[in-house]
């Protein structure tokens, strides 16, 4: 479904954000992308929805090289959820209008827009909040509106960049509950996060990004992952193991 092959991303001034990254995400998977701040998680996520282009290497989405996909077409087939729901929701539009906005832009008929927007909001448990404005909703509810907007096109892939970042643990769990439902319904979900508790609780596949490089999941234990997410970064799994050995 999503495949990165030796992908490298360099920004201006030759700063390497992602270096020779390869991984695959299969249909129906729910994958966490974890790593300390500045590790390259957001760059990887942005490359998935073509907000950034790789400097070298290849990315495949739905089995097609991403450079062959038109951005608008790609984004209509994936749902993107960002951390900053405050600015990603339109303040002067209700929850329903925010979700309907996407379908209207695609020239869908009013009856279709009404049906699908209601369906998406109901799926996210917001049936009774449809006509509320963002400022009348809690942070978790606002993020769920953003997710409803992302799924209103029934995408097969949902890409979430730190969607729990601004939420308290209760709201974060609530959002996770709905993402799990969507995953069970068949959506492939990729989510970058800093939320250690959620990563531990969910027990999903984890892709660890450190200094722009993807580490092999098998070689890490959960406490090391916590260390990475907190920015207490060992240089490599071998150093980590050596460190453990010295301490013991």
């Amino acid at each position: 479904m999503i495949e990165f092959r030796h992908v490298k991303k360099m920004y201006e001034r030759k700063e390497v954000a992602v270096d020779n990254v390869s991984f695959s995400i299969h249909e129906g998977e729910f994958v966490f992308l974890v790593g300390p701040s500045g590790a390259g998680k957001s760059t990887l996520i942005k490359m998935m929805y073509k907000d950034e282009k790789p400097s070298s290497g290849k990315i495949f989405m739905f089995g097609t090289p991403i450079h062959r996909l038109r951005v608008s077409k790609l984004r209509r087939n994936i749902g993107v959820v960002l951390q900053d729901f405050h600015s990603s929701l339109l303040k002067k539009k209700t929850a329903y209008e925010n979700v309907a906005f996407v379908l209207k832009q695609q020239g869908k008929s009013p009856s279709f827009v009404k049906k699908e927007a209601r369906k998406a909001l109901t799926k996210l448990g917001l049936a009774d909040k449809m006509h509320k404005f963002p400022h009348q909703l809690s942070g978790g509810e606002q993020q769920r509106v953003a997710i409803a907007r992302a799924i209103v096109n029934n995408p097969k892939i949902i890409i979430c960049d730190e969607p729990l970042g601004d939420l308290d643990s209760e709201n974060a769990r609530n959002v996770m509950k709905y993402l799990n439902v969507l995953n069970q319904e068949g959506a492939t979900i990729v989510m970058s996060t800093h939320n250690e508790e959620i990563v531990k609780e969910e027990n999903k596949r984890i892709i660890i990004v450190q200094d722009g490089v993807v580490q092999s999941q098998e070689e890490w234990n959960m406490s090391t992952i916590s260390g990475i997410m907190n920015g207490n970064v060992p240089l490599s799994p071998i150093d980590d193991m050596l460190g453990e050995g010295e301490n013991s």
Partner: peptide
């Protein structure tokens, strides 16, 4: 700008 950001994110065509 807010609307444009969402339009970009959700795949509205450049002409639209």
């Amino acid at each position: 700008q807010d609307e444009l950001k969402i339009k970009h994110l959700t795949g509205a065509g450049m002409l639209t």
